[in-house]
Nucleic acid binder design. Structure first.
Length: 576
RNA sequence: CGGGGCGUAGCGCAGUCUGGUUAGCGCGUCUGGUUUGGGACCAGAAGGUCCGGAGUUCGAAUCUCCGCGCCCCGACCA
């Protein structure tokens, strides 16, 4: 490609709407352009990167016997009615009617579509297992797109779906996908990517992992032991906190005028928050169930854990009216004497196993001292609902947990029979009996992966793309193209390298050197060749890597062979 | 969906508080010339529904009201 005709202006100034590195460089380098919030056009540079990422994904999916298909973006809503997700998924699912008034959706994921396919194409256990995947547009009407390509409304995703005769086979295949994903993310050049335990969310199912590219701008919080043996999303992370068990002292009601918050009460009574119990009230969305969550005063409730335990899809903080109706006093709420008929009580071990806590007395301006769970209330649901904090002890190694941010570039789920049962996707086993297939699903966000690589591979001047996905492998600059021999030499190298299959971007514009070098930095090709009258006089061509300041001078006769080899060597680093 | 910020040329901004020439600057673009190793210089040029609508006023980019859009924080998030 000749740069004089490459579409996508580079800019010197940082666009005001961009905050994180990947967003800034994708705009400044002319890779993407916004069309609406969270909706982007990919320009040639980005499209080339994305294509290479997709190729790597396809190779790895094919290696684990995946079969590529292509399902539509527009689906009839009735499929989503069958699975039940018409009800459970909210406004992220874009719904509309076609000209005949038929309810349609823009697919945000394809479980329904692929199950619809599987149940008609597959009838026998002899056809199992199999995996289908496609690389296709997803639309999710996100409430708040952000961060350039990190969170968008329309995007390209590779999603794969496997079908099995039993859960054991699903588990084995899941592990193969896990390995394939590790290869994909290594090959696309992520330098720091981990798979972690995750919440299954609206997908359902039992087991799932997320692949997280570690980056400060990531939206997810990850807790990890220093040796990486334990890695989990904040939503499901646990810690091995220990609790002080002392001989119980007598329960005692004390006056705490106008002290409502944990800090106020602890300060007033001269103790630290660890010696208090915190009451947090939630309710379901239509206020039919009141939930009393109790936890040690210095900890916070992890609502995801609480929701999952209660099997209530959505919860909110309860209103004071609802709390009072159940006989509790907001700000002074107590587990002591609460009517279990009216309140669902969930106690974190941190509160259940600590001794002599200060808790509310269900009476304005009063608290109890020396609350002890086993003695002072009926035994109830003691469940881990605590939010982990950085530095808390790891549940596996006991070491302090690191807290990191991550971009979710991929995820894998063992769905089991969640969709195949609801949508009646069965096969006949060896005994002629119809049974639901076991299913797994596996996603990779392609554009987000590109952004994540950029977050991990850049310097102060722009992206430093790995050879495996770089939009161009070699950036060829002709300095002073009007001077004797420069253009001829550059054209010859351009033609020779291109003929050997090397992706070359040829800067033929004849701009000032600094101008061209800055553009080259923003394009981030791993290798750079500079043709100038200065070096040409000695029959030399300058050769520089994007990730180094060192310069070499190659004999012009050897350039093609040397560079072709260098590209091959570099590519070899990203094969598995 | 709650809170905050912003909207003036392709991009970055000034002007708005305190209404008043022909709306300005830098980058980029075009023409001609001089230049050519880390975003050159000279001369000239093109490019604007000042986000939209309504209102106040002799007069609105500027004041008022109502919309819309984008970014950030939060809630939400297969």
């Amino acid at each position: 490609m000749r740069m004089s005709h490459l579409i996508g202006q580079r800019t010197k100034e940082t666009p005001k709407d961009a905050q994180n590195i990947s967003h800034i460089y994708l705009l400044r380098g002319g890779y993407v352009r916004p069309v609406a919030a969270g909706i982007y056009t990919l320009l040639p540079l980005a499209k080339r990167i994305v294509k290479k990422i997709e190729t790597i994904i396809r190779e790895e999916m094919d290696r684990i016997d995946g079969q590529e298909i292509l399902m539509p973006v527009v689906l009839p809503q009735e499929l989503w009615d069958e699975s039940g997700r018409s009800q459970t998924v909210g406004a992220e699912l874009l719904r509309f009617e076609d000209r005949n008034g038929k309810a349609m959706v823009l697919a945000m994921t394809h479980e329904e579509a692929v199950v619809h396919l599987a149940r008609t194409e597959v009838n026998s256990y002899k056809q199992l297992p199999f995996m289908l995947y496609h690389v296709q547009t997803k639309y999710r009407d996100e409430a708040r797109p952000r961060g350039g390509l990190i969170r968008v409304r329309e995007f390209t995703m590779k999603d794969g779906y496997s079908f099995h005769a039993d859960n054991e086979d699903l588990k084995q295949y899941y592990d193969r996908v896990h390995e394939a994903y590790e290869r994909v993310f290594r090959r696309v050049g992520l330098t720091n990517c981990v798979s972690i335990q995750s919440d299954t969310g609206m997908m359902g199912g039992a087991v799932s992992h997320e692949f997280m590219a570690i980056a400060d701008c990531g939206e997810d919080t990850i807790y990890m032991s220093p040796d990486r043996r334990y890695k989990a999303n904040k939503e499901v992370a646990t810690s091995a906190l220990t609790f002080s068990a002392e001989p119980p002292l007598p329960l005692e009601k004390v006056r705490t005028p106008n002290r409502r918050s944990i800090d106020e009460v602890a300060d007033f009574l001269g103790v630290t928050p660890e010696h208090t119990g915190k009451a947090v009230f939630y309710s379901d969305m239509d206020d039919t169930t009141l939930i009393f969550a109790m936890i040690r005063g210095d900890l916070e409730v992890n609502e995801t854990k609480l929701r999952n335990y209660l099997k209530i899809p959505q919860i909110k903080f309860a209103t004071d009216a609802l709390i009072r109706a159940a006989g509790a006093e907001p700000g002074y709420a107590s587990p002591v004497g609460l009517d279990r008929e009216q309140v669902r009580i969930v106690i974190d071990p941190s509160a259940a196993r600590s001794s002599n806590l200060i808790v509310g007395a269900n009476e304005a301006d009063y608290h109890f001292k020396n609350f002890n769970y086993e003695r002072d209330m009926d035994p109830g649901d003691v469940v881990d609902i605590a939010a982990v904090r950085g530095g808390d002890p790891c549940p596996v190694t006991g070491e302090p947990l690191d807290m990191l941010r991550g971009i979710e570039v991929g995820n894998i789920f063992q769905l089991g029979t969640k969709y195949t049962e609801s949508m009646n996707c069965t096969f006949l086993d060896a005994n002629g009996k119809a049974r639901p297939m076991f299913m797994g699903c596996y996603g990779i966000g392609v554009g987000r992966t590109m952004a994540a690589v950029l977050e991990q591979r850049h310097d102060d001047y722009g992206p430093v793309w790995p050879m495996s996905i770089a939009p161009y492998q070699v950036h060829l600059c002709a300095l002073n193209p009007k001077k004797e021999g420069v253009t001829e030499a550059a054209e010859k190298i351009y033609a020779d390298l291109t003929a050997r299959g090397v992706d070359v971007l040829f800067d033929d514009r004849g701009e000032k050197a600094g101008f061209m070098f800055n553009d080259a930095d923003l394009i981030g090709a791993p290798l750079r060749l500079i043709i100038s009258p200065k070096t040409l006089a000695d029959e030399k061509v300058e050769y520089k890597r994007r990730d180094s300041q060192d310069r070499e001078f190659l004999d012009i006769s050897a350039v093609t062979a040397t560079i072709t080899q260098a590209v091959a060597d570099e590519l070899a680093k990203y094969t598995c």
